[in-house]
């Protein structure tokens, strides 16, 4: 029985050490709980805000098949946001509160979604690169220490499997299409390459929250290691469809077997995260407007339930 104050901590540490999942009702350090709430809600917000750049092209999808794929894909992202909000809710934070934190700028979301989706090829690039990068990260998170987060990730990874492929398919078709389509595809790759690489977060040397996250087994691989995995996979995929990775310094290191790339512009990363990217304002405005326009609907549903349930 936990009679001493240190007992819950011992329990937690022992569980982490054994590699067991921490479950909602288990004792856990307040810092662990707060770290998770921040990370999971941020992850959820990214899924939700990420619906917007792709949503921008739903009504212009060039075939019925493309329209249905894109709709189903964006719907999945909404579902992912939902699973993640649910996982965060098990830690005692409500969805209302998380939404408020997003809208007031207290909680963040992935900087990549602050870039605009300009042409149909961007839909290809987002699926191929942005979902591709997300998958590398999410595969790791399937083994994260918090049970509900890990289980949400298992579900998400299962659903993600078509997202990257549909994006790559669009890119492949366009790269093999008319000269205009080819240019669009290359242009989209040029614009999305760096933002996708930045999705893994700052280099390990500067990574703010990493140390504890490793200790608690929330994070199991470093930002740079994950980024490298993604680069190594993606370079080959670009070659297959005849597109050029927009990095003059890209080269294969024969010794390590890994690709080397030029340094990323982290100043831009921090600027966009801090609110000064091409679409930050529009993304949040869209979210706020929809939220406000939906208030009367939620109130009506709650009022109806109050009267008849």
């Amino acid at each position: 029985m936990p009679t001493t104050t240190s007992a819950p901590d011992d329990f937690f540490t022992a569980k982490i050490k054994r590699g067991d999942n921490i479950e909602p009702r288990d004792p856990m350090p307040e810092e662990y709980r707060r770290h998770l709430i921040r990370q999971i809600s941020q992850h959820a917000h990214s899924e939700i805000i990420g619906m917007q750049p792709e949503g921008n092209w739903i009504t212009r999808a060039p075939s019925l098949r493309a329209k249905m794929i894109l709709l189903a894909k964006i719907q999945d992202e909404g579902g992912h946001g939902l699973y993640l909000y649910s996982a965060a809710e098990t830690l005692g934070v409500g969805r209302e509160e998380m939404i408020e934190q997003l809208q007031t700028g207290k909680a963040r979301y992935s900087s990549v979604f602050n870039y605009p989706a300009l042409t149909w090829a961007d839909i290809g690039a987002i699926g191929w690169l942005v979902d591709g990068a997300a998958i590398v990260n999410q595969v790791m998170l399937q083994r994260t220490s918090y049970g509900p987060y890990a289980r949400a990730m298992v579900r998400i990874c299962k659903e993600e499997s078509f997202h990257q492929r549909q994006g790559y398919e669009i890119m492949a078709k366009m790269a093999a299409g008319t000269p205009e389509q080819r240019d669009m595809a290359q242009d989209a790759l040029n614009r999305w390459w760096a933002p996708a690489l930045m999705m893994f977060g700052p280099p390990d040397a500067e990574s703010l929250h990493s140390k504890k996250a490793f200790l608690w087994k929330i994070k199991r691989e470093s930002n740079d290691a994950l980024r490298q995995k993604f680069i190594d996979k993606t370079v080959q995929q670009a070659e297959v469809i005849g597109l050029k990775i927009p990095d003059p310094e890209l080269r294969l290191n024969a010794e390590t077997g890994h690709y080397e790339t030029s340094p990323l512009n982290w100043e831009e990363f921090h600027r966009v995260i801090d609110g000064y990217g091409p679409c930050n304002r529009q993304r949040l405005e869209h979210h706020r407007r929809v939220h406000e326009e939906g208030a009367w609907v939620r109130e009506a549903a709650a009022a109806y339930a109050g009267k008849f349930n």
Binding site: G55, I58, L71, I74, Q75, L82, V290, R298
Partner: peptide, 14 residues
């Protein structure tokens, strides 16, 4: 389809 990302809450959006 125009309503995607514009639902009054997430579940209704889906």
């Amino acid at each position: 389809a125009e309503l995607c990302s514009r639902g009054p809450f997430l579940e209704e959006d889906l």
